[in-house]
């Protein structure tokens, strides 16, 4: 499954949100979020706690009514066809939400009944869900006594019993140990390989790399979206150079106010410089610094981490907000 190029959406997209907004009193939790997720795509929803990830997912599931905007999921309008939407989605809320006083089998049987899984198929699907969660032999264990990773996988198993084409997973891996988190992501990719569209939120930046596309959200606003590679390449709005030079302070001073230099910051014993793409090359930079008496050891283009990009975008958002 490959993601379509950004900006081109098709009516066929599994999730379409246009200007989704949610206000709680004077507080705007989600501010005009527009996004599309193609079929079979794994989209990561990245942002700090309280950024509006959960509220957006809840609006897409029909659990919370948008104050403005519209959305469709699996071809159904979230507002007017919420019942059809619910038949076609699987949802895992942030808080663990299976019935702890019921056993593994009883939970699965319950959701199979609620989703009207054909009786003839239940046994097979339950076997699949149990093995996917790694709970063979524990079918009669009360769910409350399971450890975190197993609970999460079982919750996923319950959410996909009815083979929904679209999955919404709200921080499914929070509080789960790293090993279990990796297994969980393997499961998501198995599902994607079968054409399941997934929107998964997380605040673990490293998990963003597992997604086909990511949407960065901060204070209710979608601040960027694209594949992890694209974001790392373009997210800073220029090319990132990593410089070994000394003295660092003088170098920083030298670069301030130079046209084409967007950002410069000390990173440990190095300097990170973001330059307008095309405006300044490595040679220009070297010349500029040497002209100011800075010894330049090495200079090379580098890829920022997603965290760099995120921090950059959030900072820029704050500036524009402060200005405007």
């Amino acid at each position: 499954m490959s993601a379509p190029p950004p900006g081109t959406g098709s009516a066929d997209d599994a999730v379409i949100a246009e200007g989704l907004t949610k206000r709680f009193g004077a507080f705007t939790a989600v501010d005009r979020v527009t996004l599309r997720i193609a079929r079979g795509e794994v989209m990561g929803f990245i942002g700090p706690n309280g950024a509006g990830k959960s509220t957006t997912i809840r609006m897409l599931c029909g659990l919370v009514e948008p104050s403005e905007g519209r959305a469709s999921v699996a071809g159904f309008d979230v507002g007017s066809q919420s019942q059809a939407v619910r038949e076609h989605i699987g949802y895992m809320s942030q808080k663990f939400s299976l019935y702890g006083d019921l056993t593994v089998r009883e939970n699965l049987r319950f959701f199979a009944g609620i989703y009207r899984v054909p009786a003839g198929e239940f046994a097979g699907r339950m076997r699949y869900a149990v093995s996917m969660a790694g709970l063979e032999g524990q079918e009669n264990t009360r769910v409350a006594t399971l450890a975190g990773g197993w609970k999460q996988r079982l919750a996923l198993g319950c959410a996909i019993l009815h083979h929904p084409p679209v999955l919404f997973l709200d921080e499914p891996t929070s509080g789960v140990e790293p090993e279990a988190r990796r297994r969980f992501w393997d499961l998501i990719h198995d599902l994607a390989a079968n054409g399941v569209t997934t929107l998964v939120s997380t605040h673990y930046m490293e998990e963003a790399e597992y997604c086909n596309r990511i949407a960065l959200i901060d204070r209710g606003k979608l601040i960027a979206s694209g594949s992890p590679g694209e974001l790392r390449q373009r997210g800073l709005g220029g090319v990132l150079y990593e410089l070994e030079c000394s003295p660092l302070g003088a170098a920083l001073e030298a670069l301030r106010g130079v046209p084409g230099i967007l950002e410069a910051a000390i990173f440990g014993d190095r300097l990170h410089v973001v330059a307008d793409s095309g405006a300044a090359g490595t040679a220009d930079l070297t010349g500029l610094l040497r002209g100011r008496g800075v010894a330049v050891g090495s200079i090379r283009p580098a890829l920022p981490t997603l965290e760099d990009v995120f921090v950059h975008l959030v900072a820029r958002g704050l500036e524009t907000r402060a200005v405007g």
């Binding site: 659990l63 989605i89 809320s93």
Partner: peptide
Amino acid sequence: GTMEQLISTP
């Protein structure tokens, strides 16, 4: 917290 799951179903 089971209610949130329940109301996400049909």
